[in-house]
């Protein structure tokens, strides 16, 4: 289980900003989101989209617990 946050265009695409999703790893979470919403699943692995686990950028795999916060960050706009 993890608390998932979406930002920017990803939030518009999915139609939600925050959701709790059953998953014990980052790859499992991606698969769960893909199953729920194939368009979102595709966008999450799109160019320039980064994943942050508990506010640290992660490339590759990470274990998740119920308290883990996972954010998907599309390319940043800058200020």
């Amino acid at each position: 289980m993890a608390r998932v946050l979406l930002f920017g265009p990803l939030r518009d695409l999915a139609g939600w900003r925050e959701k709790t999703v059953e998953a014990s790893s980052l790859s499992g979470l991606r698969a769960a989101l893909q199953a729920q919403d194939p368009l979102l699943g595709e966008a999450l692995s799109g160019p320039g989209v980064q994943a942050a686990v508990d506010k640290a950028i992660v490339r590759g795999e990470a274990p998740l617990t119920a308290l883990t916060e996972v954010a998907f960050l599309p390319p940043m706009s800058g200020g």
């Binding site: 930002f7 920017g8 265009p9 960050l73 599309p74 940043m76 706009s77 800058g78 200020g79």
Partner: peptide
């Protein structure tokens, strides 16, 4: 302007 984590 280019690297700060904002979405505008």
């Amino acid at each position: 302007k280019s690297r700060a984590p904002f979405w505008k």
